[in-house]
């Protein structure tokens, strides 16, 4: 194979980006929620909830925008469960997250059989079409990769920048970071700690769900059981690798997406090697990156810790 061929390179980069999009949406949600001090193991479930919601919405309204809307709604619903259990009731956030993942896995499989029935695997739902940005899309390599994408990808780029600006350039973002590091100090400064965490966790649900919606509405146009396939956990690794910074997490997702694209190509080129070996690649890279590259990451100081005012 030769990766240096211009067309191959364009293809590879395009695939990398497409594979990273769901990760990036989810990782942005992860950054937001974890910066406010709430572990988000539930990203996986929220992607899946979003995927199902997107399929359902697109099916009912026969329109991709309806799909996206219902997808986001379902993700926010899953986020609200985490918020109520993990923030208000102070249930262990890891356990809550695992519970949500398992719950979503079960309920989406169940509902999908009721709604789509036998046609689930032959369905072709309405989806988003690529939009050429005139001029820009004819730049070699970069053009087709970045500027011949569908609405969701442009939305993702905008959201990554927005989350960054929100966290580092607005008073609310400062409040989020303070709550994640020292909720007692934030409370003393008059910031509603639980309110901030609710906002972040529910928004994270919506963001992760957009990742799931993208898979359905831009890639496969149908819903299948457990189609999130571990993406939420890769996104979680990207949050850590990106040091809880939205742009860092984005870069980490692109890295994972690139290795995913590479393994697909390797599978194609070396068909006599069992494909499972290549499939391991992105996960192997995520482990190696976490062990080796990041040095000692500094997670938000109060992450995973319940905050109560009168608890002395």
């Amino acid at each position: 194979m030769d990766l240096l061929n211009l067309q191959t390179l364009t293809d590879m980069l395009g695939t990398s980006l497409r594979l990273s999009v769901p990760l990036i949406f989810a990782a942005l949600g992860g950054v937001l929620s974890e910066r406010s001090g709430v572990f988000n193991i539930a990203l996986e479930g929220k992607i899946l909830a979003g995927a199902f919601g997107a399929a359902l919405g697109a099916f009912l309204f026969n329109d991709p925008f309806g799909g996206l809307l219902v997808g986001i709604l379902f993700g926010m619903l899953a986020g609200s469960i985490l918020a109520v259990l993990g923030v208000s009731l102070g249930v262990n956030q890891i356990v809550t997250g695992i519970a949500i993942n398992l719950f979503v896995l079960g309920i989406t499989a169940f509902l999908s059989r009721i709604v789509f029935g036998a046609q689930a695997n032959t369905l072709r739902l309405p989806g988003f079409k690529p939009i050429d940005l005139p001029g820009l899309s004819s730049i070699p390599v970069i053009g087709p990769v970045l500027f011949r994408q569908d609405l969701m990808v442009y939305l993702m780029i905008a959201l990554a920048i927005l989350v960054f600006l929100f966290l580092y350039r607005t008073p609310w973002g400062l409040a989020v970071r303070a709550v994640g590091d020292n909720p007692a100090a934030a409370d003393t400064a008059g910031i509603p700690v639980h309110g901030v965490r609710y906002g972040c966790v529910i928004a994270a649900g919506g963001l992760a769900a957009m990742g799931g919606s993208y898979i359905v509405l831009s890639q496969v146009f149908l819903f299948s059981e457990h189609m999130s396939a571990g993406k939420g956990f890769i996104a979680l690794a990207a949050v850590i690798l990106g040091r809880w910074h939205p742009l860092g997490a984005l870069a980490a997702c692109l890295l994972f997406g690139m290795f995913d694209a590479l393994q697909l190509r390797l599978q194609f080129n070396y068909q006599d090697v069992p494909h499972q070996f290549f499939q391991m690649l992105p996960y192997l890279i995520s482990i190696l990156a976490l062990v080796g590259l990041v040095g000692k990451p500094r997670p938000p100081a109060a992450i995973g810790r319940d905050y109560r005012r009168e608890a002395k």
């Binding site: 400062l174 409040a175 970071r177 303070a178 590091d181 020292n182 100090a185 934030a186 400064a189 910031i191």
Partner: peptide
């Protein structure tokens, strides 16, 4: 009640 990870000015405008 200070967020030790933030800068002085960030702590002061907080809230």
């Amino acid at each position: 009640m200070l967020v030790t990870q933030l800068s002085v000015v960030e702590n002061i405008v907080l809230g």
